[in-house]
């Protein structure tokens, strides 16, 4: 049996209490949301916090408020399964619900939370291994070692951003509200939260608590997310394409595209977004060109499932498919 390392566990009832515990316990402590990412990592000794501050008892961190006109406010402890079913989410941003449904498996969606999904650790098949396995390669840069085995001459870690909701939140322009134990509060754009480094992949201090995710009003935009993985469940994305467009007919008024699973942070493509503005999606060549531009920043490496050059090749295919889907308006009705 893979067992957890020893830890102390708290179950605060309020955000204040949670922050106070965090303040008292210091850097040895970690927040525990659904546990579906942190606990396996702890069993493999990738992370070994001595204290877990469980958030499941804090009612104020759950639930969805708002609508398509005002925008949505998601409590970060809302489970992925709740998000899938939530009528307000399905009405305003169906892609968010649909994406949640693509994450892992049904029981894990009952446990995993949207906040946890947005903050999951980067993944790499040199890193998501047991302690003994990692010892056989003298560990890696991300934990206990010095070398990034994906690119041994590289000064940085290439672990992969593997959340499905992250690229989508970036193209929607979601914002995240973070509270610190010292009482300070800040709100950050989703796209600003993620850094292109497998180790320091979050621009967030460990003691900061994510208390709310805000999705903007819809204002005529459509969004979609396409996921590439081996199997229809369990698997993390090896490529995820999120796109949000404002269309008039088939004419693109504005476009946001972000690609996940092909780098340590979601990759956006200002070139592709600028290219699409003012162009018609009726033209297949426009789609092809935009897909090619959007795929450029993808840097898949040999640390996930599938052949890396094939994943690179698939990026433009999937971007084009996402654009075609938005042109057809499928995403808006996918959950009906």
């Amino acid at each position: 049996m893979m067992r957890l390392p020893p830890f102390r566990h708290y179950r605060p009832r309020t955000v204040e209490e949670a922050l106070a515990i965090m303040d008292g316990e210091g850097p040895e402590a970690a927040f525990l949301a659904g546990g579906t990412d942190l606990l396996p990592n702890m069993k493999r000794r990738q992370q070994t916090p001595r204290v877990l501050v469980g958030l499941s008892g804090i009612a104020e961190l759950r639930g969805v408020r708002g609508d398509s006109r005002t925008g949505l406010r998601l409590g970060p402890m809302t489970t992925l399964a709740e998000l899938v079913r939530d009528p307000a989410v399905r009405a305003a941003w169906p892609a968010v619900a649909r994406t949640a449904e693509l994450i892992s498996t049904p029981p894990l969606r009952n446990m995993g939370t949207i906040g946890g999904n947005l903050l999951i650790d980067t993944r790499c098949n040199y890193y998501n291994q047991s302690y003994e396995w990692r010892r056989a390669i003298d560990f890696c840069m991300k934990k206990d070692g010095r070398v990034c085995w994906v690119a041994p001459s590289s000064p940085r870690c290439w672990a992969v951003q593997s959340s499905d909701e992250v690229p989508l939140m970036c193209v929607l322009g979601a914002t995240l509200r973070l509270l610190s134990p010292d009482g300070s509060e800040r709100t950050v754009e989703a796209a600003e939260l993620y850094a292109d480094d497998g180790i320091a992949h979050l621009r967030k201090r460990p003691e900061e608590l994510l208390v709310e995710i805000a999705l903007p009003p819809v204002e005529g935009r459509r969004a979609t997310y396409l996921k590439l993985r081996r199997r229809g469940s369990f698997d993390f994305p090896v490529l995820g394409v999120a796109a949000a467009l404002q269309l008039e007919g088939e004419l693109v008024m504005s476009a946001r595209i972000a690609i996940g699973g092909v780098g340590s942070a979601p990759r956006s493509s200002p070139e592709a977004e600028a290219f699409l503005r003012g162009r018609s999606l009726a033209d297949e060549e426009t789609i092809a060109r935009a897909a090619e531009l959007a795929a450029r920043p993808a840097r898949p490496l040999d640390n996930t499932d599938f052949h890396m050059s094939w994943r690179k090749k698939m990026t433009s295919v999937f971007v084009a498919r996402a654009l075609r889907e938005l042109r057809a308006g499928v995403a808006a009705t996918a959950l009906v």
């Binding site: 049996m1 893979m2 179950r11 546990g35 579906t36 606990l39 892992s104 029981p107």
Partner: peptide
């Protein structure tokens, strides 16, 4: 024991969860 197979699935208030990743104190 890592949430990758479903063999340990139990119901909590009728909802399927994986007992290998659930803490009893919660």
């Amino acid at each position: 024991e890592l949430g990758e197979c479903g063999a340990c699935l139990v119901l909590v208030d009728g909802t399927p969860v994986l007992s290998c990743l659930a803490l009893p104190q919660e």
